[in-house]
Simulated scan of single mutants.
Amino acid sequence: MKINLLCFPFAGGSKYSYNTFSKIAPRHLHIVPLDYPGRGARFKESLLTEMSRIVDDAYEFVKKHAGENYALYGHSMGTVVAYLVTKRIVRDNLPKPLHLFVTGRGGPSISDDVKPARYLLSKDKFIQAIKELGGSPAEVLDDEDIMSFFEPIFRADFQALDTYEYEPSEAFDVPITVMTGADEQVSYEQVVAWQRETTRPIVARQFPGNHFFIFDHVKEIVRIIENTVATESLVAVD
């Protein structure tokens, strides 16, 4: 049975960020990454700086796949977008995703409390903040011509994240798997906070690595997703 895995990019990312996932995934797990406006295949569109508008845009993409077997996956900023889209799906009584997979971030009820807001930092401090996250090659971050293109994208995404305010709501009946890196700044309490969002017991896994541990463990992460959605799809059929 084919299952679509709709993938939400991290800050500064695009649908091309998940090319490795597409190469490794088995044929029945179809990786369907999306682009936010202003990057990737949608680079000519205006960037969005409000989380609500990003979610509105992503929701329209997800609705096209909501009649099929599907799951949602997001990393870092993508976890917030995927979570809010899931809330919207449940609210609108659309077919729910089989599973929500989130990596690189604690529950949305836990504020990042980033001060000063990253998107307001000077250029040097802003680039340093990106470097500290890992995941972006130094030769890219140190190249002024390349960064003249990417810096506005990063700033728009961080503005959406840094100004996002959590709104408590009733937990949804969608299972959640949380995966984090041992060396990133996500505590056990922040991981457990995801339990507030679902009526199902969450599953938590930790991997060696920093915030972008996902690229060092693609095979294992894809295998976890594959095995999990295979089980969920059987339950859905029953």
Rank of each mutant, 00 (worst) to 15 (best):
residue 2 K to I: 15
residue 4 N to A: 11
residue 5 L to D: 12
residue 8 F to H: 05
residue 8 F to Q: 02
residue 9 P to D: 05
residue 10 F to K: 00
residue 13 G to W: 04
residue 15 K to P: 03
residue 16 Y to L: 08
residue 16 Y to P: 00
residue 20 T to I: 07
residue 24 I to D: 01
residue 25 A to R: 01
residue 25 A to H: 01
residue 27 R to N: 14
residue 28 H to F: 10
residue 28 H to P: 00
residue 30 H to T: 15
residue 32 V to P: 00
residue 33 P to N: 12
residue 33 P to A: 12
residue 34 L to H: 02
residue 34 L to F: 08
residue 36 Y to W: 06
residue 38 G to K: 01
residue 40 G to D: 10
residue 43 F to M: 12
residue 45 E to Y: 01
residue 45 E to R: 05
residue 45 E to P: 11
residue 46 S to M: 11
residue 47 L to H: 06
residue 53 R to Q: 15
residue 53 R to W: 02
residue 54 I to Q: 10
residue 55 V to N: 04
residue 55 V to F: 04
residue 59 Y to N: 05
residue 62 V to M: 07
residue 63 K to Q: 11
residue 64 K to G: 02
residue 64 K to R: 14
residue 65 H to K: 10
residue 66 A to N: 13
residue 68 E to Q: 13
residue 69 N to E: 07
residue 69 N to A: 11
residue 69 N to S: 11
residue 70 Y to A: 02
residue 70 Y to E: 01
residue 72 L to G: 09
residue 75 H to G: 08
residue 76 S to M: 03
residue 78 G to P: 11
residue 78 G to S: 03
residue 79 T to V: 11
residue 84 L to Q: 12
residue 85 V to D: 02
residue 87 K to H: 03
residue 93 N to K: 13
residue 96 K to A: 14
residue 98 L to Y: 00
residue 99 H to D: 05
residue 99 H to K: 06
residue 100 L to I: 09
residue 101 F to N: 08
residue 103 T to A: 15
residue 104 G to V: 09
residue 106 G to S: 09
residue 107 G to W: 04
residue 110 I to G: 00
residue 111 S to Q: 12
residue 113 D to H: 09
residue 115 K to M: 07
residue 116 P to M: 01
residue 117 A to V: 05
residue 118 R to T: 08
residue 119 Y to H: 15
residue 120 L to M: 10
residue 122 S to T: 14
residue 122 S to Q: 08
residue 123 K to N: 09
residue 124 D to Y: 04
residue 124 D to E: 14
residue 124 D to T: 12
residue 126 F to I: 09
residue 126 F to K: 05
residue 127 I to D: 02
residue 127 I to L: 15
residue 127 I to T: 11
residue 128 Q to C: 00
residue 131 K to D: 06
residue 134 G to E: 03
residue 136 S to P: 03
residue 136 S to R: 06
residue 138 A to S: 12
residue 138 A to Y: 07
residue 138 A to L: 13
residue 139 E to A: 09
residue 140 V to L: 15
residue 141 L to Q: 04
residue 145 D to I: 14
residue 146 I to S: 06
residue 147 M to Y: 03
residue 147 M to D: 08
residue 150 F to Y: 15
residue 152 P to A: 04
residue 152 P to Q: 02
residue 153 I to W: 01
residue 153 I to E: 03
residue 157 D to I: 07
residue 161 L to I: 15
residue 163 T to M: 11
residue 163 T to E: 14
residue 168 P to Q: 07
residue 169 S to F: 04
residue 169 S to Y: 05
residue 170 E to V: 11
residue 171 A to S: 14
residue 171 A to W: 05
residue 175 P to W: 01
residue 182 A to E: 12
residue 182 A to N: 08
residue 183 D to Q: 14
residue 183 D to S: 13
residue 184 E to D: 06
residue 187 S to Y: 01
residue 187 S to W: 01
residue 189 E to W: 00
residue 191 V to K: 14
residue 192 V to T: 13
residue 194 W to F: 11
residue 198 T to L: 12
residue 198 T to P: 10
residue 200 R to M: 12
residue 201 P to L: 08
residue 201 P to R: 10
residue 202 I to F: 07
residue 202 I to V: 15
residue 206 Q to G: 07
residue 208 P to E: 14
residue 209 G to W: 11
residue 209 G to A: 06
residue 209 G to C: 07
residue 210 N to D: 13
residue 211 H to D: 10
residue 220 E to F: 00
residue 223 R to I: 00
residue 229 V to R: 01
residue 232 E to H: 07
residue 235 V to S: 09
